[in-house]
């Protein structure tokens, strides 16, 4: 045990050795081997974690959570929509009308085909001959309808 008077600091290492010797020899206080270097590493690691945690945590960011919730809802809705076959009465009127028209079109495919042919052909007719072309078409159609009717 050191005398009960002041002891002077020398340098850092000497001081630490002195402190360690006094605590171990006088007070019987031991510690695990290599404790200080391990403890230093742990503290530095914790400080690193503390430093990173200064970034605003997600749970505090209301905008982030609102956006996340909206995305989740959209995702769920998308899944439901793709897995459900809609009933005709659930479809908006404008959509159902279009479907009806398309179905009709498919049934009168020949009519539409003929109409398309005359429209395409008219593109290649000179302006001066257009009246004659239309007259011929109308006459042809009238004869066709009459034959069909007969």
């Amino acid at each position: 045990m050191k005398p009960l008077n002041k002891h002077k600091n020398t340098d850092q290492k000497a001081l630490e050795e002195k402190l360690q010797k006094m605590h171990i020899e006088d007070l019987g206080l031991g510690m695990p081997e290599d404790y200080f270097s391990k403890s230093k590493s742990e503290i530095l690691a914790k400080v690193g974690i503390e430093d990173k945690s200064k970034v605003l945590p997600l749970y505090r960011n209301k905008i982030f959570w609102a956006a996340a919730a909206a995305i989740a809802v959209l995702f769920v809705l998308t899944l439901f929509k793709t897995n459900t076959v809609p009933q005709i009465e659930e479809i908006p009127a404008i959509v159902s009308d279009t479907i009806e028209q398309l179905n009709k079109g498919l049934a009168n495919e020949d009519f539409y085909q003929g109409e398309n042919d005359i429209l395409i052909s008219s593109l290649f007719v000179e302006d001066t001959e257009l009246d004659e072309f239309v007259d011929n078409y109308m006459l042809g159609e009238a004869l066709f309808d009459k034959t069909e009717f007969d």
């Binding site: 850092q12 001081l15 630490e16 402190l19 360690q20 206080l29 200080f36 230093k40």
Partner: peptide
């Protein structure tokens, strides 16, 4: 700073809280 004060503070604390 840790190198300089870790041991000194450890011993100060150790005597107050008693166990390692």
């Amino acid at each position: 700073l840790l190198d300089l004060y870790q041991q000194r503070l450890y011993w100060h604390i150790r005597k107050l809280v008693n166990t390692h």
